[in-house]
Design a protein around this nucleic acid. Sequence first.
RNA 1: GCCUCGGUCGUUCAGCCUGGUCUAGGAUGCGGGCCUGUCGAGCCCGAAACCCGGGUUCAAAUCCCGGCCGAGGCGCCA
Length: 438
Amino acid sequence: MLFNGVIAANVMKSWTVEAASMPDGSQVELAGWVWDVREVGKIRFIILKDREGSIQVTVKKGDAPQGVWDAAAGLVKEDVILVKGVVKASRIARSGVEVMPSELRVLNRSKPLPIDIWGNVAQTELDARLRYRTVDLKRPESLVIFKASSAAVRAIRESLYDRGFIEVFTPKIISTSTEGGADLFPVQYFDAVAYLAQSPQLYKEELTASLERVFEVGPAYRAEKHSTTYHLNEFISVDLEAAFMNYRDVMSILEDVIINVYSNALKVPGVTDMNREISVPKKPFAVVSYDDALDMLGRKGINVKWGDDIPKEGLEALTGEIGSPFFLVNFPTSLRAFYTMPIEGDPSRSESFDLVIDGVEIVSGATRIHDRKLLENALISRGLNPANFESHLAAYEWGMPPHAGWGLGFYRLLMVMLRRSNIREVVLFPRDRNRLTP
RNA sequence: GCCUCGGUCGUUCAGCCUGGUCUAGGAUGCGGGCCUGUCGAGCCCGAAACCCGGGUUCAAAUCCCGGCCGAGGCGCCA
């Protein structure tokens, strides 16, 4: 006997965790999935699970209605059921309460699952887990990850709204490479070729001329054939840009954002099981200049030529030395994107920064150039043609304010915060070099 | 794109080095049976696998070659 939509609309179910704190004798209606059935002769125990937890439903032969007893007999793991019954305090049941059902309806049947979600098998390979991601997401650990993910975006939004930022949306289908460099995915756009945006960079800068303080949480696409545990071809970027601020100002905002993300994620039950050392970072974060970082690395035998990027090994060594998180500032101008503001009086260095957590680059930002002439020269010095950026450059002639901003790799932040060894774990349906489904 | 490692029941771990004793073992999941307080339930029974192709050999899960797939590292990465 299957369920239909009309009945579904009438379900006023409680979360299992709510039932656990109800007084003895309360009537409840619960809906969820069969996590386990333990049959002990004339008693059948059903562990009913929902997103928030689980509760034991106890069916005694002769005590429960015969129909409930019969229905309980056929249950298998992950069957979807609706239970009405009475909450009963119990010294035997784990949570202190159990539900004695007066009604038990099977809303849908489940086949045996293709992967283990109960923790009975050591560690299912990530590839298999992602292939059956909808099933994998039933694992309690997966639920914690995506609750933490939600708490994190929410913390970001609240922090930024509180500081006068406006949330915006910029196009993800664009006409040309915004900045040159990273490879873009071409898409057919009617009769033209368009590309998936690699970053909202130029749009958000243009918006500072009107909306002043903006941020966007959205996808970014890179057609790079990398295969690492911390790169994806589609990822969520948190981008911020603010008029009348410099890099130090937006670094300070970033500190608050990171602190709020950590403190809100910590409130999610289960997060500390994934990262036992997790703690809310304290302001101010350590700040190290690129030049000083090179010196520190040199003393450790890691030689980086001035003007070269600091390799992952170097970032890890610096984390060991400085702690985490820390800011790396004042990168060589040549190492950064064309819109990065050089330091006045020291133009080979720039008003730029990265935020590094546990050896991973999480955020990258800078004061931007707001003068058209300077910006054109910066393009030219990188071998880019200003003519290709004309519509962007034009904005700089109509009252472009001084501005600064940053871009934060949301999945990377989650990965380091939750101590996952692979970024794919914190992404519902990751897109990488060889993964386009599910 | 490069390097290293790997591919055995649905999942997961063993067997491979040292070819035969593998009719391929364990766990979990699945099916059946017993049990009125289980909660990692227990006990008994059952079904279920050597990535593909070629080679060496009397004999290949095991050794060799190629392919495909995966993991990790590197490179690339506004």
